[in-house]
């Protein structure tokens, strides 16, 4: 187990270097000279040259990447081109917002997907409704759902503020009011994905012999479903949860933009819009690292849920 973890972590290093290098070179070649972008089209060649020299853009790309990765390892991702703020600082401010929203959404989506698809009676009676919610969650774009929620709860009913963010320090009620709609929006999509994955696996598990054996012991349908079928059907959901948490910004980009939340997703969008490549690179690296780490955690969780799976 420990050797597996160490091996996977060591393997993560070249993966991170390769992917960030790919990001670095594609961003610098596709977007062109950062100095040109920062100073605008009318800038004099002298001014561009001066800026290039100041930031080191006149050096070969490989040197620039070397300098960047050396800094990144020490937690120094440089300064944003647009705000001149420290990138590490900007991201550190955004992560709690995105992380909290994502975790709540995943918790809600997983619980709902697993419970609704496990309850013996509900499984059959609510099958139509669950499928409908699945389809809505997956097919309706996040921004549509978000805007619809804003329309319903903010414009029409006036219960919740439409956009913005309030940290915990502003009070629990204020915080929850701002986070409910983004969480609902984001979890609708996750619910759709988790529910489909879980249901397919559950159907398989329900055919297995030990389910019949559990019934033959005299256990109730609830016990059969929750104690015997659930732990065997939940494995693929764990993988999906791991990948989803790792992606962080992936699902959050649209939701954060719709609800103007100061999270990593929105930071990523504005970085792209402003050609702010230190920020783009830093978030790119964050996503890669996140996915790798969460995959590892998901694999460890596998061994806890299913004793048949062992790493050696």
């Amino acid at each position: 187990m420990l050797t597996m973890i160490v091996r996977r972590l060591l393997l993560a290093i070249p993966t991170i270097i390769a992917i960030t290098a790919l990001l670095f070179f594609s961003v610098t070649t596709i977007l062109g000279s950062p100095a040109g972008m920062m100073l605008g089209q009318d800038a004099s060649t002298d001014a561009i040259a001066a800026l290039n020299a100041r930031y080191g853009f006149d050096r070969p790309a490989i040197m620039q990447y070397g300098a960047w990765i050396a800094g990144a390892i020490q937690g120094d991702f440089g300064r944003s081109f647009t705000t001149q703020q420290s990138v590490a600082r900007a991201i550190a401010d955004c992560i709690p917002v995105t992380l909290e929203m994502t975790l709540w959404s995943i918790l809600l989506a997983t619980t709902a997907a697993v419970i609704l698809n496990t309850i013996p009676v509900a499984r059959r009676a609510l099958a139509g409704a669950t499928t409908a919610v699945n389809l809505i969650g997956i097919t309706v774009p996040n921004f549509m759902l978000g805007i619809s929620l804003i329309f319903l709860f903010s414009v029409w009913l006036g219960w919740l503020p439409s956009t913005g963010w309030a940290p915990w320090s502003d009070g629990v009620a204020e915080h929850l009011k701002r986070i409910i709609m983004p969480v609902l929006t984001l979890s609708a999509y996750y619910f759709g994905v988790f529910s489909i994955v879980y249901r397919a696996e559950y159907r398989d598990v329900a055919q297995r012999m030990f389910i019949q054996v559990a019934r033959a012991k005299g256990l109730s349908e609830w016990m059969v479903a929750f104690k015997h079928a659930l732990p065997n059907a939940i494995l693929p959901v764990i993988t999906f949860v791991g990948i989803t948490i790792g992606q962080l910004t992936g699902g959050a980009v649209v939701t954060e933009t719709v609800f103007s939340m100061p999270g990593t997703g929105r930071l990523f969008v504005s970085a792209i819009a402003g050609h702010d490549f230190p920020v783009m690179l830093a978030i790119g690296m964050l996503i890669v690292t996140g996915v790798i780490l969460m995959n590892l955690l998901a694999d460890i969780a596998y061994t806890i849920v299913n004793p048949q799976i062992r790493f050696d």
Binding site: M209, F210, K217, N232, N306
Partner: peptide, 17 residues
């Protein structure tokens, strides 16, 4: 309790977890 059953396939009759 009153009657019990054993099944054909012992490999899949026990819950793996």
């Amino acid at each position: 309790n009153e009657m019990a059953m054993i099944f054909q396939d012992p490999m899949s009759s026990l819950n793996p977890v």
